[in-house]
Write a protein that binds this DNA or RNA. Structure first.
Lengths: 357, 357
DNA sequence: CTGTTAGCGCGTTCAC
DNA sequence: GTGAACGCGCTAACAG
């Protein structure tokens, strides 16, 4: 019997493998194959991979050897089912065509990927119902946590999320009624900041120009900050909105021309973001209108473009990439069981005064 | 016995539920709960959800009813394990800080999400080893397919991918040696196209200026196209490279100044992309250098910015969003069992002549 | 068209 | 420090 052992072992191995794959044969290398080769139990392989410190270095080495000779790649789905946790974080944003969200996602992705988490992308087109169903479906992936945009969501979704019990971060906006954690910027203060700057520069006839506020209520919050400052300064609050149109250089150019036409006595224009403001500066260049001598222009975001235009653009800069990084760090802290100092992070903003005002 | 049936049924249901959750109690609603409420077998619920046409409308209705009263959300991980397919497509790109990739991702994401697939984001920082390990780890999610950037990959990764047996699309670049499917643009032709334009405009002293080619070999392919055209025209091929630096408006401005300084007799500048070219135009504006009278500027990409600058930018436009959409469509075709007309899609490009040349 | 049975590959639980 | 047994929730395979 002893002398047949090797042969029998091999036969058993083969037939065992075939047996297991009787029905739906994926020919993937499994933890079982590794265990067989390393001469240990599957669970030991699992431990060697997930909690190496709980396995003797001798076995660990043998297992690592087997892993690399077989080219074993863990089946994260099986692991996820067993442990009810996938190393995955869905990030749900309103749109991927708006640079702001992209930059935040970049920060999130970079930080999470370094820590071994993958980012799942979802976009809602600013529709809270779509957001709700998207949230439901991504929860089906058993993610480790979720990152959402804004503080306003479908009521049912909020209820389900609160019951869910895993880390949730709401980004972009700051407030008191968040689900779990909150990283963002005070939109109202941002709008007020630029308005304050324009007023303090001595401008009196100031207009606020924006697009898309019917979709993105955060743009409306910034406007509200602007409005209050003007009111307190006793100034009239001129507005030019194109609520349905997305922001673009093109839209900025049009808005600029319209404003000049309808109110030629305007002294300063506060644009809802740098895309619009940059469009306005470029239109002014094309028409030979001097900025800020004939009319001043202010934006919001801190797009790198604004720095290079002539005149360079005064703006309120929000650290968007850093916002993503902070959100990811907060997420990781919670995932690793650390208790973050605060569940709410104000990412801040900065008034960047340049030539256009 | 008969009269106790309802009671017993309830008891059984409850105790059964408890029993199942003996060990690790997730209190999630499962397909089992739905089946119980609808009075059918779990598999019927599964079918009603995944292939509704194979279930009688009567049962389907009852099941839908049960689903919504219980608020059942499918556990995609369990389904993924059972079917060896998660409705998920990893998209692996070199960088999320380069707008081009973002726009392609946008097209992919939008198209796939409509079809009920989620996009998993991965970035490699142009490192083929990182790409290889990223590929290995995303395959662990049992995705339905994979989208990769470029045709050059780690050798082992290519081998494993070829053995994998699911749809794989390589984007951005066009070639004959692709793994499974290929959607992209002919970089060599793109570079030649702009060079051809500049030569045909009568420019003779032409320089090619680029950044980052040590990381992104596709930039080098475009340059090679440029070089060949100049050679055939009997012109000298001037170059100014900053191989390590990423592209930015800032880099474009510096490159522009350096070129003027080192070779004041240059007539036209062919920039490796619109970020650089736009930077150059903006620097020219700032210095009062007339474009194209004193020096012409051409770019590549078709960034919307180029259209709004003064002078507006001549460029070779590549439909990046559409490239993503096409890649996603090809993926979907394969996933739905349709055989696409071709495994290779040339997304094309267009010379957009504007004021800067 | 519907149900029964048997896993998918791994990690948790409990025992040694 | 290591292993055996079991089940996570769902679907493929086969039968009726």
């Amino acid at each position: 019997m002893a002398k047949t052992t090797p042969g029998r072992a091999m036969v058993k191995q083969n037939s065992g493998a075939r047996e297991r794959r009787r029905h739906r044969g994926s020919d993937r290398v499994t933890i079982q194959d590794v265990a067989l080769l390393a001469g240990v139990a599957p669970i030991t392989v699992s431990r060697a991979l997930n909690t190496p410190e709980r396995v003797s270095s001798k076995l660990r080495e043998r297992i690592e050897q087997a892993v690399s000779t077989l080219g074993y790649v863990p089946n994260l789905v099986a692991g996820g089912l067993a442990s009810a946790k996938m190393r995955m974080i869905p990030v749900v944003v309103p749109s991927l065509s708006i640079l702001t969200f992209i930059e935040v996602i970049h920060g999130i992705q970079q930080t999470l990927e370094e820590a071994g988490y993958q980012v799942l992308l979802g976009s809602t087109d600013f529709d809270l119902d779509r957001e709700a169903s998207l949230i439901d479906s991504v929860l089906g992936y058993s993610p480790s946590g979720v990152i959402l945009t804004g503080l306003r969501h479908h009521e049912g979704a909020v209820r389900r999320l609160k019951a869910w019990g895993h880390p949730i971060i709401e980004i972009m906006e700051l407030g008191d009624e968040f689900i779990d954690m909150n990283v963002g910027v005070d939109n109202h203060a941002v709008g007020a900041c630029m308005a304050q700057h324009l007023v303090s520069q001595g401008f009196r006839r100031i207009a606020y120009l924006g697009t898309g506020m019917s979709r993105d209520y955060r743009a409306m919050q910034r406007f509200e900050g602007h409005r209050q400052v003007l009111e307190q300064a006793g100034l009239e609050c001129e507005v030019l909105f194109r609520r349905e149109e997305p922001s673009s250089y093109q839209a900025g150019r049009r808005l600029f021309l319209e404003a000049l036409e309808s109110r030629p006595d305007l002294e300063a224009l506060h644009f809802a973001n740098d895309n619009l403001a940059a469009g306005a500066v470029m239109e002014a260049n094309r028409r030979g209108i001097r900025v800020p001598e004939e009319i001043a222009i202010g934006g919001y975001l801190g797009l790198s473009l604004g720095e290079h235009l002539t005149p360079s653009l005064t703006t309120v800069t929000v650290p968007r990439f850093e916002m993503g990084v902070e959100a990811a760090k907060l997420m990781l802290a919670r995932l690793e069981g650390r208790t973050p100092p605060s569940a709410k992070v104000d990412i801040g903003y900065e008034l960047t005064v340049r030539e256009s005002t």
